[in-house]
Write a protein that binds this DNA or RNA. Structure first.
Lengths: 113, 113
DNA sequence: CATATACTTAGCCACATGGCTAAGCATGAT
DNA sequence: ATCATGCTTAGCCATGTGGCTAAGTATATG
C-alpha cells in the first residue's frame, strides 16, 4: 500500500506491542538504562534493544550514550499525531452519525404525513 | 510477552496499516459493501477481506450479510480504549515532567541559599 | 435452468517481527 | 594490564503479515 502516513504507521505499530507499551509506562517514571528496562520484561538484552529501536524510530523515546550506559527517555510530544488522528476520526464518525440521525428524522417526518 | 492488553494490541495493530486506516476513513462517510471498499485501494478482494477481518477482530467495524452482499460499518466506540490509553500516558508523562520541574526548582532554591 | 455477481476459502510467496545465542566492542574498576 | 559490565552486532528460527491466484459457494437475474 502507498505510504500515505509513515509516521502514523510507525507510531501505531510501535504502540501495538505490550512489551513496548510496558517499557513506555516504565519510562514515564523517569529515564532508565537499557539493562534496567530489560529487567522487568524477562527478555534478553538484544530483544529489548530491538524494541527500543522500534520506539526510537517511532520518535517515542530518545536515547543518549554516556560512557557505556545508554539512557532512554520518553518524548511526550510523540503521542500527539496519534491523538490527533483519533480525534479527527471521532469527529468524522460522529458527524456522520449526526447526519444519519437528521436523515432518519427527516424521512420519518416526510413519510408519515 | 504476557498479553496484558490484548484489546489495545489488536486495536493499535489494526490502526498501524495505511490501507486499514483509509478503509476506516472511507467508512466514516457511511456503510459500504466489500467490493466498494476494495475499489479505491486497488487491492484484490481476498486481500481486502483480510484487512476487514483484522478491523472486525479489533472491534473497529461491524459487518452484516444481506443476500450476497456484506455491508461494513464503523463502530465509533471502538476507538475509546486507544484514546484512553493515550490520555493516561500523557497524564503520566506530564506528571513526571512536573515532578522533575519541581525537583529542579527545589534544588536550585536549596543550593543557592 | 443458466449465468453473472459478490463474497469466501485455500494455499502460495516474500518479507517482517519477535524471540534467542554467541561473539564482539567499549568503558569503568582493580 | 586485566577483568567485569553494558551494550552491540550477527545470525538463526518460528511465526505473522500482506500481497497474490485459483477455485468454491451462495444469491440474484434472465
Amino acid at each position: 500500500m502507498a505510504k500515505h502516513d509513515p509516521d502514523l504507521s510507525l507510531l501505531f505499530h510501535a504502540l501495538a506491542d505490550p512489551t513496548r507499551r510496558s517499557i513506555l509506562t516504565r519510562l514515564a517514571e523517569g529515564p532508565a538504562a537499557v539493562t534496567d528496562l530489560a529487567g522487568p520484561t524477562g527478555l534478553r538484552l538484544p530483544t529489548v534493544m530491538r524494541h527500543l529501536s522500534v520506539l526510537e524510530e517511532a520518535g517515542l523515546i530518545a536515547t543518549t550514550k554516556d560512557g557505556r550506559v545508554r539512557t532512554c527517555a520518553i518524548r511526550p510530544e510523540a503521542l500527539e499525531p496519534a491523538r490527533t488522528w483519533l480525534d479527527e476520526q471521532r469527529a468524522l464518525w460522529e458527524a456522520r452519525l449526526d447526519r444519519l440521525d437528521a436523515f432518519v428524522t427527516n424521512v420519518m417526518k416526510g413519510g408519515n404525513q
